[in-house]
Each structure stands twice: as structure tokens, then as C-alpha cells.
Amino acid sequence: MRLLVAMLFASAAAPAVAQDHSGHTMPSAQSPVQTECEKEAARHRAMGHPVEDGACAPATQPAPGGHADGHTGRDHSQMGGMDHSTMDHSKMEGMDHSTMSHESIQLPEQTPMDHGAMGHGGMDMTPIPEGPPPASAGSGPPRAADAIWGADAMHASRNALSTENGGMNVFWFQGDRAEYRAREGGDGYLWDVQGYYGGDLDKFWFKSEGEGTFGESPESAEVQGLWSHAIGPWWDLQAGVRQDLTGPERTHAVIGVQGLAPYMFEVDAAAFLSNKGDLTASIEAELDQRITQRLILQPRAELSLSAQDVPELGVGAGLDTVELGVRLRYEIAREFAPYIGIEQEWKLGRSADYARLAGEDPSVTNYVVGIRFWF
């Protein structure tokens, strides 16, 4: 539509240049601009757009500022404003131009954009100040809504807000390692599970870990029940009881920390004091390295220490055992991921001597296949 208006205006505004052939008899001819205008007018008539007859005819009077030497221009004085009042936009299958009025067209002169007329006159362009809120922001009563809705109604509302934003209790359980271990001297198994029930700050945390050789009694097995309290955004302080289920049964008091160290290392460190006075400790750390969104490589390390020799448990003073391993898991779903890996165990110092006396190898390589899951 704008193209038609522009071409009509161009054809009208372009002066028709004619030479004085008064002494000759010549057939009438149209200028190239006028011919192009007629083509455009015919095309729009074929589209159903009403176009005024003679719209492309040269004007009889020169336009304001015209020349007296025979150059003429179109008269734009009779061109009114474009009438959009009859334009039909109700059908979206195609724009209906049949009722669009082109009887009078006027191109207004370009004027500076008036933002006041566009409703922008009241726009405040003052930059937002940086800094703390004014003192008056906290000057009102702390529980002003009580005066409107009542203290009882607002008390229930505040409790619901606290519960829905972190005060709710959550149950979580994870099988961190449930694996088959292929090794020299007899294949074995291992389990390492943990979970909790509670809120953001306080939880009841439970853990169980053990391993053994198929066809034999478990070499080690334990369960822990701990109270866990958040001491920061990334760390929990844990305290409770550990019960050994194999060998000389012992009960231990437990205190430790569990959380996320810098560079995304998951750390679980605890000290144990048994009912026999034995003081031991363990430190576990693992790191998830994502290869893809589902394929994860997990290096893992575990250290066991003892403050004294415990011959009946085969534990020597100092650094007792070291375990280093790596596992590659594939998350079929976030909650279920099979894995394969390799882990090397070493008994050190007096612990290695106790192992040799018992006919065991102080160094063992395990090839593992397992499942990690949580819910």
C-alpha cells in the first residue's frame, strides 16, 4: 500500500518536461513516469483497489514553485488524508483491501517525533540509585499485616511460608556403591549406602558400609546413626553412634563433618572412639567429572588412620590403609547409573604386617562393576 502511495506521489511530483513544438503536428505521448504510474494503477485495479480515473494525468496548473517556461507539476492541493476507517482486519486468512479507500491520499511533511503525544511524556529517565535502602524502609511496624488480617491468621500464614521455603522435612536415600569385585584370591562384594531424613538445618543421617568375599562371612560391616546439623552452606557437623557388626563387635562414638569442599570435592571425615578406648579415623573424598551430560568419571580416595595398634582388628598405629580408585558411570536416569572401575588397596606399616601374618596380601587390586542409585 505504501509503495502505491509513494509511486503515485513520485509520478505526480516529477515535472513533465516538454519542448515547444507549436510549429509541428506531433502525436500525443506519455512521459515514462506517467506510463509507469498507469501500470501501477492498472495492477491495483486488478487487485480490487479503487483508483481514481485520471490519477496519473498531468496537472493543468503548475505546482507551487513551478516554472513559467512550460514545465508543469502535479497539483497536490486536492489530495486528502488517507482513510483507514474502512479497512477490514477482521479476517486473518488474508488482508481485505476491497474496502480500503484511496480516493484521497496525502503524504504529510516529516516532522520530529513527538514522544509526548505517544504517551511517553511522563517517562522518568532518572537512573536507578545504587546503595542501601533508606532508613524509612524499615521504620514501619514489623508485623503490620496483623492489624488488617489478625494475628492468628498471619501466624498460620508465616508458618506455611517457612515450611514451604525450607522448613519441610525430606527423605533421601542413596546407594553410593553397590558393586561386584573381581580380584585375585576370590571375588567379592561391597556396599556403601547412606541417607537422611530432616530439614535444611537438622537431619537424622544413617550410613552403612561393608565388604566380603563370596562364600565367606563379611570381612567388615557397620551401621551409623548420626545427628547432622548445618554449620554453613556447604558443611554439616555430624555426631552419633557407630556399631560394628563383624569381628570383635565394638560400639563407637562418632564425630565428623560431611560436605562439599572447594573445587566440588565431596568429603566425609569422621573420628571414632570405641568402647574399648580405641581412637581411629577415616577420610573419604570423591569428585564427579562430567564427560557428557550422562557419562561421569569419578576418582575416589579413602584413608584410614589409628592412634594405636589394635591387633585383634589387624590395625596398626598411624596410617592404616589407603584406597585409590576410579569409576566410570553412565546415568540411564539421574537416579540410576551402572558403572565400571578399578580400585587399589594398600595396607601400610603395622597393618601390612598383621595382614601377612594372617596370610593375606597387603596390596589388592579390585576390578569393579556396580550400580549407583538414589531416591
Rank of each mutant, 00 (worst) to 15 (best):
E219R: 13
F214S: 07
Y196L: 12
A221Y: 03
Y189I: 04
V170H: 11
G186Y: 11
Y197L: 13
G167S: 09
F204V: 15
E216T: 12
N169L: 14
D176T: 10
A221V: 01
A221G: 14
G215S: 03
E222H: 08
G212P: 00
S220G: 09
V193G: 01
G199W: 08
K207A: 04
G195L: 02
E222I: 08
S217Y: 09
E184H: 14
R177L: 13
R177A: 10
G185P: 03
T213S: 12
D187V: 06
L190K: 05
G175V: 06
K207T: 08
G210Q: 04
G195C: 05
A182I: 12
G175E: 02
Y196P: 00
G185K: 08
E209L: 10
F171S: 12
E184L: 15
K203P: 00
G215N: 05
D192Y: 00
V170C: 01
W205Y: 14
D187H: 10
R183W: 03
Y189L: 03
N169P: 05
E222R: 08
R177K: 15
T213H: 08
V170P: 01
D176H: 06
F171I: 07
D192I: 05
F173N: 07
N169A: 10
F206G: 11
F214W: 13
A221D: 03
E211S: 14
F173M: 12
D202W: 13
G199Y: 02
G167Y: 13
F204W: 09
D176F: 01
D187R: 08
W205N: 06
G212K: 02
E179K: 02
G210E: 00
K207F: 07
Y180N: 01
A221W: 08
Y180R: 06
F173K: 04
R177E: 10
G167E: 01
S220P: 01
M168W: 08
R183K: 14
N169K: 13
G188E: 00
T213M: 08
G210V: 02
E211R: 06
Q174V: 14
D176V: 05
F173P: 01
D200W: 05
D187A: 14
E179F: 07
K207E: 12
D192N: 14
G198W: 02
P218E: 07
D176K: 11
E209I: 03
P218D: 03
E184Y: 08
F214G: 04
W191P: 00
F206S: 07
S208N: 09
Q194D: 11
F214M: 11
G167D: 03
V193K: 00
F204Y: 09
W205K: 09
G210M: 05
D187P: 01
A178Y: 13
E216P: 00
S217P: 02
G212E: 03
R181M: 13
